[in-house]
């Protein structure tokens, strides 16, 4: 009786771990399909467009407001005496190392993991995946590989763009609202920003992009039957992708910065 909640917790932990294992196997299958032809160029181009280009607005807006808010916070957080130096450097480092990749990837997870899971899930439910097989086309190569490749390549680009827009957001708030000197702001941004701050964020972006697409495809391919199955697959894809992004972010940060 008393143990019931504990048992429930254990059960969900176990099923969570099992799902993680299956996603891991799915990753391996994806990588195996990635290196063997045929390659579907047209599908890849389409995926670049929908995953990359169409994510620009949401990633850009997110970064802009985050950069602005960050500048305000740091200024208000007691550093207003040395604000001209502290605000630009923390905004730049914070955006490039953490907030750019993480928030960008979370927005993409919401946008892309859901739409991939829903699209592939619907294809599964309406037997389109079976039809692909009967037309001698491997669903892994035709559906999964183009999306995973596109997301892995696009996210670093989106992150780079988000970084710049975020820094610009900080600049707008810093110079417009906090009356910091514009030239000094730019100078300090460049001064304190190391190349590795940017590169590490881009690498994170690539990993997060891979996670988003693999998770979206996995839940789509394993969608249950009917509209309800697709709905559940979509929800699980977004939640799982988001949690995995945050977990991977911690691991990567540990790997990159804890010398």
């Amino acid at each position: 009786m008393i143990l019931a909640p504990v048992a429930a917790l254990g059960r969900s932990t176990l099923s969570g771990l099992a799902a993680l294992g299956r996603i891991g196997l799915f990753c391996i299958a994806t990588l195996a399909a990635l290196v063997r032809p045929p390659f579907y160029i047209r599908e890849f181009g389409h995926a670049l467009w929908t995953i990359g280009y169409n994510s620009l607005p949401v990633v850009g807006l997110t970064a802009f407001f985050t950069g602005g808010a960050l500048a305000l916070q740091i200024y208000e957080g007691g550093s207003r005496f040395n604000a001209g130096q502290v605000v630009p450097s923390i905004v730049a480092i914070g955006m490039t190392r953490e907030l750019g990749p993480v928030l960008g990837a979370l927005m993409v997870a919401a946008r892309v993991a859901s739409s991939i899971a829903a699209e592939i899930g619907t294809m599964k439910v309406t037997e389109q995946i079976d039809a692909l097989v009967t037309l001698s086309t491997d669903p892994m190569r035709y559906l999964t590989v183009p999306r995973v490749l596109a997301a892995t390549l696009c996210l670093p680009v989106l992150v780079a763009m988000g970084d710049s827009i975020g820094i610009f957001g900080g600049y707008v708030v810093g110079t417009g609202r906090l009356d910091l000197n514009a030239a000094a702001y730019l100078e300090n941004t460049v001064e304190y920003l190391e190349p590795w701050d940017v590169t590490s964020g881009l690498i994170k972006g690539a990993v997060f992009g891979f996670i988003v697409a693999v998770v979206g495809c996995y839940f789509g391919m394993n969608s249950g039957r009917g509209a309800q199955g697709v709905g559940r697959a979509t929800k699980s894809a977004v939640v799982t992708a988001s949690v995995l992004i945050l977990a991977a972010n911690y691991l990567l940060t540990e790997l990159f910065f804890s010398a």
Partner: peptide, 15 residues
Amino acid sequence: LARFGMLFQGGALFD
């Protein structure tokens, strides 16, 4: 499968 064709009950067209 290369020599094969199938009509699915629900059509299963790629939308």
